[in-house]
Design a protein around this nucleic acid. Sequence first.
DNA 1: TATTGTTATACTCTATAACTATA
DNA 2: TATAGTTATAGAGTATAACAATA
Lengths: 159, 159
Amino acid sequence: MARPDPKSVPPVVESVSDETLRSFAGYHMKRAFNVVQADLLRALKPFNLRMITYSALVLIVDNPGLRQSQLAAAMDIERPNLVVIVDELERRDLILREKVPTDRRAYALVPTLAGRQLCAQAVAAVRKHEERLFADMAPGAVEDMVALLRRIQARGSEE
Amino acid sequence: MARPDPKSVPPVVESVSDETLRSFAGYHMKRAFNVVQADLLRALKPFNLRMITYSALVLIVDNPGLRQSQLAAAMDIERPNLVVIVDELERRDLILREKVPTDRRAYALVPTLAGRQLCAQAVAAVRKHEERLFADMAPGAVEDMVALLRRIQARGSEE
DNA sequence: TATTGTTATACTCTATAACTATA
DNA sequence: TATAGTTATAGAGTATAACAATA
């Protein structure tokens, strides 16, 4: 961190040191996530899904009948941002917005048959891609990491 | 994943299950990263820095004289996107763009005294915030996670 | 020809305010 | 009055093409 005088340092740097950043977990989380997301995007390409549309579809298939506001909360995104995602899934006939008789403001989101089929295929493809990505990691290491990530995630709602 | 018929399911969901997504590491990486980044932003607020300007400043302080293209490569961002970041740090007199006599196309990025001082304070603040964020995690767990994240990161350059 | 830094541009993700129709 | 979904909009972050100056 402490250097005597920048002017006395030769103006050519051979290899860039990330010494200070290395102790900074957020930096590694961002970079590793970028790699995982790029891999994921490749896996989802055949299904024309992105990470966000994939997550939405999976949650609708697992929780048929949920409301848009519930889905937004589960995905940790704002309601306005969910609208275009639901629009896209509905336009592709993967889900339906069904009117809820007991509350005429709300929509119940349900998957279509095509939606459930595409979802099953996409889930299988994502699992395969993650297995390949994490293939030579120590057994249990990924599970430990996910457990820690979930604890960090829980910290967000605390404060 | 498999449900008999969406029409037969009551259209009210009490609590949203993320069962299928739970085995999907990228999902947890994204959500945990959001928490860490929000925490980081709070830590950097007094210094008027964001994660990206903080990373750039730290790398320039640790590697005085590096070129913009080297910095972009180290930060894993495209050269055009670095320009505004360097502009901002230079406008705030935290760094200088020095002409390189041996290559008149390039600039050597060097920190100013103010830049090095702000950087030292910001690094201390970030360390403190991460220590607090990870305070009651098992000893070594964060280090193990970072080690795994670095291995995942390395996967990105492989393929 | 290739590279450095730059401009312009576009696309995604995210965040907020304000509207409508209901409750 | 509050809530569900919506619209409009603005800000980050990111990606590509193309340019001038220089190698």
